[in-house]
Each structure stands twice: as C-alpha cells, then as structure tokens.
C-alpha cells in the first residue's frame, strides 16, 4: 500500500473558548483529488489555515509523506476563496507572485509562467489589470498563480463559490480536464455537494463545529465525468445520498 502524501491524525484546534476542530483524521494520496465537504462555518477553511501555518493545532499530528510536517515546511500552494488578485499588478505579475516571494528573479519567473497562459485561457491578457477580467478569468489567473509555485499539494478554498452558476459549471469542467492532464494532488474545500461529487476521487464529510470527519466517501465514477450523461445520473444519486446524510438529525444535532 502506498503511503498517503498528506495525513491528518486526530488534529484538534481551538480559538480561545471555541472548539473548531475536534479529532480530525483524514488522508490524501499522491495525485488524488480530494474534497472536504461540510456546512458553512464548520471549520473547513481552518484546516487550510493549519496547513499554511496561519493557525496552530493544539493536538494531533500532520504528516507529509509519512514524516511529521515541520513548521517551516511549505509543501502547499494555497488558493483563497476570493481570487485575491492584486489590483495594482498586471495579470502576468499577479501569476508570478509566489515565485517572486520564493526569490525567483522576475525575468525567470515570467519565463516560467508565460507559456501557461494559453492553457489557462488567458493569452492576450498578460498586460491587463485584474479589473479588466471576467470572474471566470480572474479565477483561472488565481489558479495559475497557485500551480506555478510548483508545490506538491494544491489547496483550493471554495474557488468557484463567488461565480455565477453557468461560469461555475464551465470552470468545473475546465478544472477536471486540467487535472486529468496534470494529475496534481488537490484538496478542494466546498459546500457544493455536486461540485464535490463531480470532481473528487474521495470526499471527506465534516460535521458542524467542532468539526470532525463524519464519513469518507469514495466516488467510483469514470472520468471525464461531465461529458457522459450516464455518469452524471450516477453522480446525482451519490449527491442525494450525501445530502441525506448531511441533513440527517444526528448530524444536525
């Protein structure tokens, strides 16, 4: 059996009096697309805060490739809820931000990012300021900024939450295609059950606060999923069972 790339083992965290995470245990395999699904305010984003170093656990252990994760280790590239593009930087300079922070010279950073603009549907917009871009394009630029950091794991925090329904669907289809091509290891935080089912290999269901993993669901559907009507029908059935579970009284408490 392969070692999980990332595992959380009994992780707990509290902000003052409030228990946010209680005994969270989950793992992510290399090249796997995993979703963390839970109600709003459950503490989904807190798990990412823990991984990016913005918060510290008060119990449990985080392991990366089988070893405990050191506090200065950063194997994660993080994409926040809203795109967080800097309005004063052109799109090209926004996408190189992570490399710049790493100390890569600007010229080389640009050379590494520029060939990717085509694939991300952004070619021709390198010199535009973010305010000139549509919501979907901004989100793709934010994802480009995330992947060029070349980290082993991508952390996507509700990346399509702020988009309109149609654009959100297009972005999901696009993300699946990109993932099939590149096989990044992705952890996606979402409260959209359909999004989780259509995109993930596995889904970790979180309980309301204090959050713990209630159930882990494997989604055995063939890919690509969006183009196949039969797959979409099966996905709808899984979606219903997850919703039933999330809405059941013992979860609602």
């Amino acid at each position: 059996m392969t070692v999980p790339l990332l595992s959380l083992d009994g992780v707990s965290l509290n902000f003052g009096e409030i228990d946010v995470l209680r005994d969270v245990t989950l793992d992510v395999m290399p090249g796997e697309f995993v979703s963390i699904l839970g109600p709003s305010g459950a503490g989904k984003s807190t798990i990412f805060k823990l991984l990016t170093g913005a918060a510290t656990a008060c119990g449990g252990e985080v392991r990366f490739s089988g070893r405990p994760l050191a506090s200065n280790e950063r194997p994660f590239a993080f994409m926040p809820q809203r795109d967080a593009l800097m309005p004063w930087r052109r799109i090209l300079d926004n996408t190189t931000l992570g490399l710049e922070v790493q100390g890569v010279p600007r010229k080389e950073a640009r050379k590494r990012v520029e060939p990717l603009f085509e694939e991300f549907g952004l070619s021709g917009f390198e010199r535009h300021y973010p305010r000139a871009l549509s919501g979907g394009m901004r989100q793709r630029a934010a994802l480009l900024r995330t992947i060029v950091q070349d980290r082993p794991v991508l952390l996507l925090d509700e990346p399509f939450g702020a988009l309109d329904a149609l654009t959100r669907n297009q972005m999901q289809i696009w993300l699946e295609a990109m993932w099939l091509k590149h096989r990044w290891t992705i952890i996606l935080i979402t409260h959209d059950v359909r999004e989780a089912v259509m995109l993930s290999d596995r889904i970790h269901l979180l309980s309301p606060r204090p959050a713990s993993v209630e159930q882990t669901i494997t989604v055995p559907l063939p890919r690509p999923r969006f183009s196949n009507p039969a797959t979409r029908a099966e996905a709808a059935a899984i979606e219903t069972s997850i919703l039933d579970f999330l809405l059941s009284p013992q979860i609602q408490k």
């Binding site: 990016t52 170093g53 913005a54 993080f78 809820q81 967080a84 800097m86 931000l97 922070v101 790493q102």
Partner: peptide, 9 residues
Amino acid sequence: EVEDLLASM
C-alpha cells in the same frame, strides 16, 4: 485574503 495568501507563500 491577500495577506493570508502571501503568508501561505
């Protein structure tokens, strides 16, 4: 979010 992003980097 911009500051969190930079911190994560």
